[in-house]
Design a protein around this nucleic acid. Sequence first.
DNA 1: GTATATACTGTAAGCGGTTACAAAAACCGC
DNA 2: GCGGTTTTTGTAACCGCTTACAGTATATAC
Lengths: 341, 341
Amino acid sequence: MSLSTDEKKRSRATIDDVAKLAGVSNATVSRVFNRTNLVTPKTTERVRAAIIKLNYRPQAAAQVLANQKSNTIGLLLSEIGGDFFTPMLRGIESQANAAGYGLLIYATQKERLLSSPLGEHNTDGLLVFVDSLADSELARFKQIGFPVVLIHRSSPPGLQIPSVTIENKNGTRRLMAHLIEVHHYRRIAFLTGQEGHEDAQRRELGYREALAAHNIPFDPQLVAPGQFNREIAQTSAETWLRDGVEFEALFTCDDEAAIGVLAAYKRAGVRVPEDVAVVGFDDINLMRYITPALTTVRAPVELVGKTATQQLVRLIAGEELAGVTLLPTELIIRRSCGCSP
Amino acid sequence: MSLSTDEKKRSRATIDDVAKLAGVSNATVSRVFNRTNLVTPKTTERVRAAIIKLNYRPQAAAQVLANQKSNTIGLLLSEIGGDFFTPMLRGIESQANAAGYGLLIYATQKERLLSSPLGEHNTDGLLVFVDSLADSELARFKQIGFPVVLIHRSSPPGLQIPSVTIENKNGTRRLMAHLIEVHHYRRIAFLTGQEGHEDAQRRELGYREALAAHNIPFDPQLVAPGQFNREIAQTSAETWLRDGVEFEALFTCDDEAAIGVLAAYKRAGVRVPEDVAVVGFDDINLMRYITPALTTVRAPVELVGKTATQQLVRLIAGEELAGVTLLPTELIIRRSCGCSP
DNA sequence: GTATATACTGTAAGCGGTTACAAAAACCGC
DNA sequence: GCGGTTTTTGTAACCGCTTACAGTATATAC
């Protein structure tokens, strides 16, 4: 028995193996594989047969090297979690796929950022979510012309990196207008979002602008930390309760915080919305099932993923584009604001 | 001004550029980069400086080709969605990362399976979730010795592919035991899960075994389709209601179906757990917040991801392993079964 | 049947790294 | 200062695929 044959077999067949078996050159095999219609039907058939016989699949790395194109885009996250994650990823993956790209995911715990050569890796472009990449790296990518699109975060000043996010301010304005104009609430409290998070900043701005627009004075007493976090929000609500701070409505900056607040109120016997209205932002899956169903602003998460990916694909194709794409949010009225249904 | 220099600059620096700038050979640069301690401190310093100056990063594809190792694992899914997805992905990503691997994700809409050369792509191994890959491809991978680990699905007969899943049957047995022994329910209905889905089959088996173990005859009247789907489950519950089929408790095979059932009962004015107990399986995020809080079985989703990835990494490292790894589930008692808290 | 245009196919040079091996340099003891 | 080690560095082959260019076979025209 021939050991050498066996040994050949054990590792994957290469294009040369196919060529030899089919009695042609590797160039011809390559042509067959890439559907350049330059090969005789008869030869094509022979090559096809050899490919099937050997179970040949081209080795991606070699193609990438030869083509200088990986057909892969990368997604950088600081953390995998949260209810928005799945739909966003779905949007990204489906769009990437439709455009013929694979998707490579990195969750970059902050520390790793500096030490690792991460980044372009094996990708043609990068989707950068929130704070998953340092400004300095962003600058480097810009400098070497490596395609990047930012998600839920705008470009650092100077670099003009395209970015996709949602109408945080407008959404908040509409939500606040509902509370003020429909329900005639005047004392509306606010739970801030995560430190340094752009969505949080824009929502806070919307809150303040809405107050001003309705001639309601801003009261710092009615602002406490929420951090996009259940526990912290719960603590803040409990503190208000203990201190006897009163208000008619509470806007929690995001839905997670609203859940924490609801837990605090439930425990304290405060009724929502009878005693106080509670509204959030994002419309995560839970909100419609929780009791009371939560009034919130729907963030088009999947669309964000889709749009960002489209832009990245165009960027990779060589189009110039920049600026912020703002996707529309939608006011979702349920029970927790005091509406009946 | 020298255009040629500019043109060089615009595309990424290669190892040769660095070598030239540092006045050494590319081999030396490679050695510096890979921390083989074979280079003089002085030379190392010169090379380092050149690397920084040129912002050099090795091109992954070239490394992959030269090393025959991509340091990337692939995850194959049929669909991105469901509440389990995020924690599973987190488990996979964190573990992959800890082992020095990147993560490539494919969502393979069924049709794509055949046409695309997908698969090993640029990965050292593959995590295959449920039904995301045809048996024939699995066989091919087995044949060429390409590392694969299955998740929530066992190996096709013959191929001995390692697989990681959860204690579906035992979890169900414990849940049923609780209903029967603690609450003394005897008429317990069952909503089946998704056709051909192994988790569903094992849970059904657990249901039947539990009945048998307690001398409760199996009643086909008390079984209806659930499909892991809210709407279908809701319809089934409504049909039972209309037909006047009575039972004391309902096990829905998964939590999604339980949500559908709850919706049907709410609309019909049936009280849970007073009129009928409802229990699910999985313990998705919602379950604790919904009213009534749902008794269910917790599936260790993140751990499944972690474990599968660990096994894959060992497989890639050349270890032989096979067989099914069964991760323990945990009974989570809340209100919907009739318990008080 | 020959000249010429046309259609296929093969040859070989990259793509950007790694690494075995060879060559050169530095070090050592005497 | 010399031969013999030991370190450090360079040379060149190779990883598997693509593709410009050259070469050969086939078809077309006369």
